[in-house]
């Protein structure tokens, strides 16, 4: 069984608002030193792949990213977590829309051993569009199951858990499929072992140029970014403190009554 996991390197989402600014002309974030991390849900997808391989024994995992050279960091991390192979499509994700990225990722997947399962985080932690995973499915003419949080049965046919608004569905795959992955308590990404981190530095990384796989000729951007702005300034809370917890709670209840909130 071959599992491909799509990984994206993103601006660290934990950067506080006060350190975050935008360049209104280029319409990109403006952050000093701009720390980069593996997008959170992609980490959940990677953990799900690792657990699937542990449950089955016969799986190999390829980590695939689209990014500039610095994005090799997320591939090194994937290799340190014992992924079997790592591939980067050498392109700047900021210059492409979701469909264009999906086109390139799908073309890169076609150069690999045909996957039985493609996993991607449900959305990236930077632009949070939640489009690329499902669009890769379309590009590959594969079915797609969104918001998968775990594998329910690891033998064929693979059965997965899909999160719904008010619970979950158990879904049986009918063959090669794309699953987008959401978080739950079973798929928090593990830490790499020190010896694996050392070994990962020596493993090969394959880089594919977009031209080698057909590029995106004929596929213009479908969405235009008109503006990137900071949200309206916040003013700060009115603090309630009436001494004891009991009195503060009473004061809070009265205030909520005045405001018509209860």
């Amino acid at each position: 069984m071959h599992v491909v996991v799509l990984l994206k390197q993103v601006l660290d989402p934990e950067i506080p608002q006060k350190a975050f600014d935008v360049d209104p002309v280029r319409k990109v974030p403006k952050v000093e030193r701009a720390p980069q991390v593996l997008s959170i849900f992609d980490g959940n997808a990677l953990e799900l792949a690792l657990r699937l391989r542990e449950a089955r024994g016969d799986a190999t995992i390829t980590a695939l990213t689209l990014g500039v050279e610095r994005a090799d960091e997320v591939l090194r991390k994937a290799l340190a977590l014992t992924c079997d192979a790592a591939v980067r499509v050498g392109a700047d994700p900021e210059a492409l829309d979701s469909r264009q990225k999906a086109r390139l990722l799908a073309a890169a997947i076609r150069t690999l051993e045909p996957p039985d399962l493609v996993l991607a985080g449900r959305q990236a932690a930077d632009w949070e569009a939640g489009q690329v995973g499902a669009m890769v499915a379309e590009e590959l003419s594969l079915p797609c199951v969104p918001f998968v949080s775990r594998v329910e049965a690891a033998e064929d046919p693979l059965t997965v858990r899909q999160q719904l608004e008010s619970g979950y569905a158990v879904v049986r795959l009918g063959g090669p499929s794309v699953c987008t992955v959401t978080n739950d308590e079973t798929n928090v990404l593990r830490a790499a072992k020190v010896k694996d981190v050392m070994a990962a530095g020596r493993k090969p990384l394959r880089v594919i140029a977009p031209e080698e796989i057909g590029g995106i000729s004929g596929l213009g951007p479908a969405v235009e970014l008109l503006a990137l702005e900071l949200p309206a300034k916040r003013t700060g809370a009115e603090m309630v403190d009436a001494g004891s917890a009991e009195e503060s709670a009473r004061a809070l209840a009265r205030r909520l009554r005045e405001l018509g909130a209860i």
Binding site: P13, K27, D126, L226, L230
Partner: peptide
């Protein structure tokens, strides 16, 4: 909202 709500993007389809 984008970037965890730290910015707002305005967009249109082409």
């Amino acid at each position: 909202p984008v970037f965890g709500g730290k910015a707002i993007a305005r967009m249109a389809a082409t």
